[in-house]
Design a binder for these strands. Structure first.
Lengths: 335, 335
DNA sequence: ATTAAAACTTAACGCGCGTAAAGTTATTAT
DNA sequence: ATAATAACTTTACGCGCGTTAAGTTTTAAT
């Protein structure tokens, strides 16, 4: 930068000021710097820049499992929103591992981020570690709520998801069984089960929860295996199933197809499957998946907006807010 | 660090040495540092650490589109390999945009990475920009080859993919048409088309390439729309189709299902669909997708190994090598 | 015990930049 | 033209650490 300043004929502090905010220098100075910039194409080192600044433009984005298309899509949206707002996002995936999640948070401190958008692992998260992190770095939680942690939480209203799908299925056919993993990684899954039971009881039906075994993040495979077992045992009480999430449903549909069971809402079908999330590929399952869609835009948009507010208000909110967006029922062919 | 050194009773340079390599200090010193470490839990700032070091442990990983499960899976493997080797990976997605790809490379310089694993956009890449970057930073290209750029290229042998699928399909049924995007983003697509034509001619069949319209990375949707049009027009010469990649095939299968066309290799099916890639979800399509699988492990493993060699040999190879791994034909139900 | 080597400490500089203070020049207002 | 700002330059220090050189202590070898 010293060199570049000399070449442009401007002092280094002024050049530094220019890079912080081009509008903060006189237009004639700006012109000279930009002229030199074209000739020598210098760029400040973004990591050194943040070394001695209280407020950086860095934002950390942490998701639990990036190979899950839901989080990949979410991350894409969040990154682009941050860039549009003039921030520099850095994306991290915990790959489903607590150890990695902790390490990511630790190394995130070095980035001195202005704020962090954080979707925790959930059940596998190290609460104490995260609590400590949130106390030091302005953090907005999304997707998966850890009670009391972070300055705010933005997510989807699981009750809205399940009540819409259950009500739709019972209104247009038989009440569904609920298909889920025995030990779900994500707290949303628990809320969905509770919502299912509550809605079923309110409607005067007996809830029927099917819990399948399986660990990790290979939900399609777990759903597939689980569905084969359920179909084989004839463990279903009615002809309709509500899956806890779309990835399980993808596995369920594959199992039905293999078994020659026609799934759908038309007359020639013997079976109906619905789900929750509106996974990016839910439109392309066979049959296409009826599902309660996350309000992607609003959840992502509200998350970044909340973080920006948090940053502007000095990293602290008076009280922790929880914002939940309702689902939008997407009727396709499977139910 | 100054503080921490004082607290541990060891001089700062020695503490610094410890963090660089714990084995490089006497065991008694190491014990004292680690004791203090537990009491005060200090961590060096990873970005400041790299400031004044010629050789960092940072590795950049850049993929063209992270919301594509293929790249998500690849990135996961690469990240974990780097971590296992004691490096610190940073992951970036170009989100399909040249501008972003360029910016990522620019900001990657600030990281002073020991090396970069780079899957370029392909057709949309800014060759000159990448060339300049590769001249400064040790870079290994993977997945998508840009002739002459980077110290090495590791990818899959597209000819092996297509020859296996075409030969299998012709051997067990009718020769396939080839289904692809008119203007594919990725150079692999062009190689696959050429391979298809060559193999078909060698087998004595007339190649038949179906090009569908569409831009961007929403391949399922593009494949879906394209398939509907093709099926409507009856533009197929035989009852079998080879899709350029699995994501197009997922769209194709969805279209077939909607049209009531039974796809598969059994007798009651009127149609066969095969593809290339072995996308993580290819096992869960309906019917499950017969496809030529990338050798994920070897491509990813060889990419990191090559990069480590490159780093150890000072960032330069005598000549640029291109390593291609053959496909493994995965027979499932669709063909 | 003597000695050489290994490991350490102190001191100082460097990385690439932010930032504050004091002094100088340019611009705007009157 | 003059004064009051605004913007700039120079100087200097700080961030959090790597790294080197010179001197001191510890350890291992004879």
């Amino acid at each position: 930068m010293e060199e570049f300043a000399a070449l442009s004929g401007i002092s280094r502090p002024t050049v530094s000021k220019y890079f912080h905010d081009p509008e903060s220098v006189r237009s004639s100075t700006r012109a000279r710097i930009e002229e030199a910039l074209e000739k020598f194409d210098y760029r400040p080192n973004i990591y050194a820049v943040n070394q001695n600044r209280k407020l950086t433009k860095n934002i950390g984005i942490v998701v639990p499992y990036l190979a899950d298309p839901f989080f990949a899509e979410m991350a894409r949206y969040l990154e682009q929103s941050c860039i549009a707002a003039g921030y520099r996002p850095s994306l991290f995936s915990s790959h489903g591992e607590q150890k990695l999640e902790n390490e990511i948070l630790d190394s995130l401190r070095s980035l001195k981020p202005a704020g962090v958008l954080f979707a925790p692992l959930g059940r596998a998260s190290d609460r104490a570690h995260i609590e400590k992190f949130c106390a030091e770095v302005p953090t907005v939680l999304f997707d998966s709520n850890l009670e009391g942690l972070g300055a705010a939480f933005i997510g989807s209203d699981n009750f809205s998801f399940v009540s819409q799908t259950v009500e739709y299925m019972t209104r247009t056919g038989e009440p569904p069984s609920f298909f889920e993993m025995r030990t779900p990684a994500n707290p949303n899954a628990n809320k969905r089960r509770k919502a299912y039971i509550e809605v079923m009881e309110r409607l005067g039906f007996e809830p029927h929860v099917i819990k399948i075994d399986g660990e990790g993040w290979a939900f399609e495979e777990i759903g597939h295996q689980g569905a084969l077992r359920v179909l084989e045992k004839g463990a279903l009480r009615t002809n309709s199933v509500l899956c806890s999430n779309d990835r399980l449903a993808i596995g369920f549909l594959a199992a039905c197809y293999e078994q020659g069971i026609r799934v759908g809402r038309t007359e020639e079908c013997s079976f109906r499957v619905a789900s929750n999330d509106d996974h990016p590929f839910a439109k392309f399952t066979c049959p296409s998946l009826t599902t309660a869609a996350h309000d992607y835009d609003n959840v992502a948009g509200c998350s970044v907006d909340t973080l920006f507010e948090l940053i502007e208000s000095g990293g602290k909110f008076d009280d922790r807010t929880e914002t939940l967006f309702p689902a939008r029922l997407v009727l396709r062919e499977s139910a």
